[in-house]
């Protein structure tokens, strides 16, 4: 067992974990943060995307011990004072989800894009989300929602 200290959505946790424990299993099974789903489990689909030290990662492809002394933000840590994050609002208002399984990863990946590029064009949005799969194929509204959250009205 290895001792880790990780800040997740603003709370610091100290835990003993097996080195083989994946970050996604730590978040869901140990901390009960089930807002982040496991999709493909092969690092393709992006459903399990979270922020680690200011950058998106696929949490099925990171060990919990690699997050030691780091800071994790999940989709559950985005709301402020009971108010949804602008991306959460935009996904809701623009009907950017059907089954909703990919939504947490889509929002985390879109948030990463808007941090680097606050006013992306539609093609840039699509490229930034290339690691996130929506099996309902609801991509059009997802792109529209990201553009709306960036303060741009979609023309596509």
């Amino acid at each position: 067992m290895t001792r880790i200290s990780v800040k997740v959505d603003g709370t610091t946790y100290e835990d003993e974990v097996e080195p083989r424990l994946l970050l996604i299993h730590y978040l869901r099974d140990r901390l009960g943060l089930t807002g982040t789903p496991i999709g493909c489990d092969t690092s393709n689909c992006g459903a399990c995307t979270v922020d680690l030290d200011g950058e998106t990662v696929k949490s099925c492809s990171v060990l919990a011990v690699q997050a030691d002394s780091g800071e994790v933000t999940t989709v559950q840590g985005l709301a402020r004072d009971g108010e949804w994050h602008p991306l959460q609002k935009a996904f809701h208002e623009r009907h950017a989800l059907q089954c909703g399984y990919c939504t947490p990863g889509m929002i985390m990946a879109a948030r990463d894009l808007l941090r680097e590029n606050p006013a992306p064009d539609p093609q840039e949005v699509r490229e930034a989300l290339e690691g996130n799969l929506c099996r309902c194929t609801g991509y059009q509204n997802i792109v529209r929602a990201v553009l709306a959250a960036s303060g741009q009205e979609a023309t596509t």
Binding site: R20, L22, S43, S61, V62, L63, Q66
Partner: peptide
């Protein structure tokens, strides 16, 4: 050796690699 883990972790999860010791150089 574990670098960024984007190849090694999928291999471990698929049980295609069985190292006794993982040396994380991160």
């Amino acid at each position: 050796v574990l670098a960024g883990g984007q190849s090694l972790l999928p291999l471990l999860r698929l049980r295609l690699a069985f190292p006794e010791l993982v040396v994380d150089v991160g």
